[in-house]
């Protein structure tokens, strides 16, 4: 007997062990997210994928699907609040999209467009953050890190390494590098590692590849993130 949940009134099936995010993706339903990639253990920290399950806010990427759940996702309230959470991520760091190498290919930027975010709304923190350009092929701009831990998980779970970690508490959270010097050059990170490519923002970049794709041909120039996400991540999930 197949089990079902409903998302915004649409009945979709799920299998035991699936999260609501898994079930939604399998049914071609996009729920905004930044810290989640189906290949890795869900983290549940960005909170963009918050949905209402039987009236209660839950994190879609970590919450198990259970028969009979009535899930609301695309309500005006949730859309507005997801936008505000995205704005929080923008003001917390230093994100200057027009000058960023990742612009047009950036998930943070694409989610912001998807949610129709037109300003930053909140007061900027303008934190003073470092760059690490010590590695021959990969650089880190801490200004753009949103602490999603995708690089941490990719390094551990896919690359079989342990290059990154998130340290600190509260607003002082920061990405740290696993080397005695604390610099990227002294780690075993390779430019071909998945951890070097997984960043949803422009915090981890491959050197000498910036601005090579002309405007008009970048990932999000003609497609919104919902479409891109379902095409690419659903595929990964099906593997």
């Amino acid at each position: 007997m197949s089990k079902n949940i409903t998302i915004d009134g649409k009945t979709i099936p799920f299998e035991d062990g699936q999260t609501i995010m898994d079930a939604a993706m399998a049914a071609d339903i996009y729920i905004p997210h930044l810290c989640h990639q189906p290949e890795f253990t869900p983290h549940g920290s960005c909170k963009l994928c918050t949905i209402k399950v039987n009236g209660r806010n839950c994190t879609a990427c970590t919450f198990p699907a259970m028969a009979g759940q009535e899930v609301l996702s695309e309500t005006q309230e949730l859309i507005d609040d997801r936008k505000k959470i995205t704005q929080m991520l923008f003001v917390e760091g230093n994100h200057f999209c027009p000058a960023c190498e990742k612009t047009g290919n950036c998930q943070l930027q694409a989610v912001a467009y998807h949610l129709n975010m037109l300003d930053d709304h909140f007061t900027h923190f303008y934190p003073s953050r470092e760059m690490d350009a010590s590695h021959a092929d990969v650089m880190i701009d801490h200004n753009r890190c949103i602490f999603c831990t995708l690089c941490v998980r990719a390094s551990q779970q896919k690359d079989g390494k342990d290059v990154f970690a998130i340290s600190g508490r509260g607003i002082n959270r920061h990405l740290i590098i696993n080397s005695e010097s604390g610099l990227l050059k002294d780690t075993d990170l390779d430019a071909t590692d998945q951890a070097a490519h997984i960043c949803p923002t422009g915090a981890i970049l491959i050197k000498r590849t910036g601005y090579q794709v002309p405007i008009g041909e970048r990932i999000y120039d003609h497609k919104e993130i919902d479409q891109v996400s379902l095409e690419t991540e659903h595929h990964q999930h099906g593997e």
């Binding site: 909170k47 929080m88 007061t123 602490f147 508490r169 607003i171």
Partner: peptide, 25 residues
């Protein structure tokens, strides 16, 4: 609360710091 937030999730990490700023203002 801003001092004690663990910083794991966006709404609390950024939100408690923003609450502090906004209240201070």
């Amino acid at each position: 609360f801003a001092h004690e937030s663990c910083g794991f999730c966006t709404p609390c990490r950024v939100g408690t710091a923003l609450l502090k700023k906004q209240l201070d203002k």
